[in-house]
Design a protein around this nucleic acid. Structure first.
Lengths: 214, 214
DNA sequence: GGCGGCATCATCCGATCGGCTATCCGGGTG
DNA sequence: CACCCGGATAGCCGATCGGATGATGCCGCC
């Protein structure tokens, strides 16, 4: 890689220690320059607007308030938007799908080796799609899946379920009837091989379909 | 702080990126030297045995296998054990209590400012107890609590609950009758102000009484 | 020694859940 | 154009849950 112009990177993560660590790790790395940091939606928009980076390294878990998915969508809505590379801990289907849907061009996990991160940042700057192996595998298994795959609507139900709602409340939340919710639940039970709502939540977390609560 | 002898630190975290980031952040910092890294129980014992550090920076989430609590307990069982400073993302009651119980002398969160981390490492080396403000607050509120506090047994029930077990299964797991489980559940509902098992799991996660699944 | 908190166990009963079956509609596919 | 799938809806019924009430034994504490 020629360093005719370095890749300008902004970090978005709500943990100061992680930000500082990432900055120490990638800043100055062959052809990479960290030009800003942010911890939430407001500061991210501000910093990106001010620094106009090539790449945004995005954590999905930003504590309270809008998460990394929302921030990604907002940044992609800006004129001349940066390429967003998600760097997070979890590889649940829901997270991956939403992040890519929001306009992220890459999805790496924090347990990736540093070299992969550096290469990923450079590739992201070029607009290439970068996926961690486990993420790619999950996507492949999703599209070319032989076995039972929960549908998008079912994922929504699973998430409400993990938040502790009853059928009546879920129905209200999803703007459908209780019967429909029960129908979704039945399909979910069958697909996950369980027979209780709590068991479904456990299985969904186990299979990385949803990520629970906190 | 005089640097008559630097504080020798070993990092334990299953994420290479985080380890590298932490090393870049704290190594060389006034009076602090990183002398080793580990990602699991086996490598931690090996590295600590070989380097005999003053402080071990311990993540509680080590992916599969034994967690940071177990590793802490094992390290503390060694002759001339290092002082363990927990550095993690979560501050649930269950995590805090178990970590301190296992012999950790400090508990910081990854969202702490770097300066607090440096100071915490030095304090830990001197054997002083270092607690993040939110952790200290939680402990205080626990002992000097006026309001409803879930008991240890109730926490056990909540954890089984979050794993999706039914009353019958929980009873078998806890070696008690179903009636007892129902009794615990009723108390939990009252204390958490909910009325369903899924709601209890959500509230318990919300209040950081338990941490869910993954 | 009494009092309260915790854990244990037991009923009873109304509310909710979970399984089963069946219908309807819209969108994509052979 | 049939066909299938995902989504939405409905009723029925046995199983489970959640609430109320009450009782026993073991602690630690004043």
């Amino acid at each position: 890689m020629g360093d005719g112009s370095p890749v300008r990177v902004v970090l978005v993560d709500d943990h100061p220690v992680v930000r500082a660590g990432l900055r120490a790790l990638v800043d100055g790395q062959d052809g990479i320059e960290v030009v800003g940091e942010a911890s939430d939606l407001a500061s991210a928009e501000e910093v990106v607007d001010a620094t106009r980076p090539d790449v945004v390294l995005m954590d999905l878990n930003l504590g309270d308030g809008p998460g990394g998915v929302e921030v990604t969508a907002r940044l992609r809505g800006l004129p001349g938007p940066p390429n967003v590379l998600v760097l997070t801990t979890y590889d649940t289907e829901a997270d991956i799908l939403r992040a890519l849907d929001a306009g992220a061009v890459g999805y790496l996990l924090k347990d990736a080796p540093p070299d992969q991160l550096f290469a990923g940042i450079r590739a992201t700057a070029r607009g290439e799609t970068v996926l961690a192996p486990s993420v790619a595998a999950r996507l492949v298994r999703r599209t070319a899946a032989p076995g039972p795959v929960v549908t998008e609507r079912e994922v929504e139900v699973l998430e409400l379920l993990s938040r502790g709602l009853g059928n009546r409340e879920m129905a209200r939340e999803l703007l459908v009837s209780e019967a429909t919710v029960k129908s979704h639940l039945s399909h979910i039970y069958t697909k996950l091989g369980v027979d209780t709502r709590a068991g479904a939540v456990a299985a969904a977390i186990e299979r990385r379909i949803i990520r629970s609560g906190a």
